[in-house]
Amino acid sequence: MTAIALPRTAAGRTGIVALGVVLLLALVGLLAPWLAPHDPNEINLMDAFQGNSATHPLGTDASGRDLLSRLIWGARSSLAGPLLVVVLATVLGVAIAVASAWRGGWLDAVVSRCVDVLFAFPGVLLAILVVALFGAGLTVAVVALAISYVPYIARLVRSAALREQAQPYITALTIQGVGGFAICRRHLIPNLLPLILAQSTLTFGYAMVDLAAISFLGLGVQPPTADWGVMVSSGQPSILQGFPQESLYAGALIVVVVAAFNLLGDRLDEWTR
C-alpha cells in the first residue's frame, strides 16, 4: 500500500472529517456511562414529551426517558451491530473467496454458482426471513445480515484474488515450495487487504441501514434497549402527536454515520487504486 500522507485535496479532507465523526461517535458510545446525564431506561411518565431544557438537553420521549441519554447509549448497539455484521461477513467472504480462487476447479465452480444464486435474493429480505424463522434479536439479525452480505464480498474478493495470484511473485513462492495456505495467509490476503478494508467500510453503511430497518420492523434490537433504529421506530406514534424529536434525532444520526462511512469507503477505495 502506498504510504498514507495527510491528504491535501478537498476530497481527502472530507475523508478525514468522516473518519473523525465516526471515531467521535464510537467514543461517545464507549463512554456512555460517564457522558449520559440520565439512565436511558428511566421512565418518568410525568416528564413525557419535554422540550429542550437544562435537565433534558434534547427533551424526552413518550415515556419521559431522556432522549440525549438514549441517543448516547444507543450508539453502542447502533455501531456495534453493523461492525459485527461487517467483521463476520468479511471474514467469511474473504475465506470463501480466497479458497475458491486459489483451489479453482470444482470448488470454485460450486462457490461461484452459490454466490450467483444468493445474489438473486435481496440481502435484507433474506435476513428478515431468517430472523422471522429463528426469532427476533440482535444476534440473529447480525448473523443473518452478515450471511446475506457474504456473496457481495466473496464475488469482489474472488476476482481480485484471481488477478493477484496470477502475479509472478505468487508463482515464485509456489516454485519455492511454500505451501498454499501459507501463501494465501502471508502474501495473497495481506496484498488484498486495502481493497478488503475499503469494501468493509462501504459495507458498514449498508449494514447500518439494514439493521436499523430490521430493528424498525421490531425484528432486531428489542425495546426498551436504546438503539437508533429502535428509536426511529418507537418514536413514530409520537410524530403523530406532534413530537417528532425521537425519530428525527435517531434518524439523523443514522444518516450521518452512513454518509461518513460511504465517504470514507470511497476515499479508501481511491487511495488503494
Binding site: M1, Q167, P168, Y169, A172, I175, G177, G179, H187, N191
Partner: peptide, 26 residues
C-alpha cells in the same frame, strides 16, 4: 508439499518482470 520442496531445491527460476516478481509488502 514435501515433493514440491524437494523439486524446489533442484530447480529454481527467475522471471522476466522484476517489478511483479517480488511481494511489494515484504
Amino acid at each position: 508439499t514435501a515433493r514440491r520442496r524437494e523439486r524446489a531445491r533442484g530447480i529454481q527460476m527467475v522471471f522476466q518482470d522484476p517489478y511483479s516478481s517480488l511481494d511489494r509488502r515484504q
